[in-house]
């Protein structure tokens, strides 16, 4: 009885979440891929061919014959899509780099803080993450507008005499991404830096190593796993970001998340948006696998 119960329990614990993720996470990707090979139709749902159980096996193969790569060819022919992919990668890359530059000193400062203060500091980094993403992006509209708070402040202290045009430019998007994803960068950096043995730095100093080269030779290499994890956590979702370019960017801002959204909601072209999603996924597969290997390694070390 005990053995049977044990077997059922362990099976259930594995099978339930496994089946859930298979059905709601993995299977949908195949559906996306399949629809990306369909052609647009004025119907409900707006694409052809549609599979139905009633078709049977021969009907199934008949419809496979109707598959077309027209949507992918369309994507290569219109420069809009290529530019959107490239500019998404560029914007995400620049933002990730700025986030690293800002996040590293913060994480380092936190890791050097008195031990009793650290949990509070950690809590303060996590706290903004609990407030809505949308709200945090929204908050920046009032700050960055031409007549907004930042310009009022800068004009009043006399740094500028013309309001800066920030909103609607890529700078607004950089600021939005850096701000929204900063905790994702700080947390892995902090956990890597906190574990570091300070006596290594002291030894280097005793041996006459200047602080800056001690940082580049010891601290930074040892924090590299945190740097990689932080950069992946920022870069991957930032490439497909929709809310930030939509609210802070302008009409000429090209980001693939926004293109996909418009293709789907405004143009109602499901097959093309499915093709856009498939290619985006292919671009992101490499960094995602990279991220997962890092995760798996961390998991193994934890065991």
């Amino acid at each position: 009885m005990n053995k049977l119960g044990s077997a059922i329990f362990s099976r259930l614990v594995i099978i339930l979440p496994y089946a859930w993720l298979l059905f709601f996470f993995l299977v949908p990707f195949f559906i996306v891929f399949r629809i990306s090979l369909s052609t647009t139709a004025i119907a409900q749902p707006p694409y052809e061919p549609v599979f139905a159980l009633a078709d049977g096996l021969s009907g199934f193969f008949g419809k496979v014959g109707q598959f077309s790569f027209a949507n992918y060819i369309w994507l290569t022919e219109d420069a809009l899509y290529l530019n959107a992919y490239l500019s998404s990668i560029w914007i995400a890359g620049v933002s990730t780099f700025i986030t690293l530059l800002i996040g590293y000193p913060i994480a380092y400062g936190m890791a050097q803080a008195p031990r009793t203060l650290r949990p509070t500091l950690l809590m303060l980094v996590i706290l903004p993450f609990w407030t809505s993403f949308l709200i945090r992006v929204y908050a920046w509209i009032a700050i960055l507008k031409p007549e907004g708070l930042l310009n009022q402040f800068l004009l009043s202290i006399g740094v500028i005499d013309q309001p800066l045009i920030i909103i609607g430019t890529n700078w607004a998007i950089y600021i939005g991404i850096v701000y929204s994803y900063l905790p994702f960068m700080i947390l892995p950096l902090y956990s890597a830096l906190e574990k570091m043995d300070n006596s290594l730095i002291e030894a280097a100093k005793d041996l006459g190593c200047p602080p800056i080269s001690a940082f580049w030779k010891i601290t930074f290499p040892l924090s590299l796993p945190g740097v990689v994890a932080g950069c992946m956590l920022v870069f991957i979702p930032a490439v497909g970001e929709f809310v930030i370019p939509d609210l802070l960017g302008g009409s000429q801002t090209l980001m693939i998340g926004k293109t996909l959204w418009n293709e789907f909601n405004a143009n109602r072209d499901w097959p093309v948006s499915a093709a856009v999603a498939t290619i985006l996924l292919l671009i992101l597969v490499v960094p995602i696998v990279f991220f997962q290997n890092a995760q798996a390694k961390a998991e193994e070390q934890g065991r």
Binding site: L26, I31, V32, I236, V239, G240, G257, Q295
Partner: peptide, 24 residues
């Protein structure tokens, strides 16, 4: 595959997850 399916949604752009679930 299981651990892959657990970690991938953490970084998956929301537009992809949303679109794929809708199509499902």
């Amino acid at each position: 595959l299981f651990s892959g399916m657990v970690y991938a949604p953490l970084v998956m752009p929301e537009v992809i997850t949303g679109l794929s679930l809708l199509l499902l």
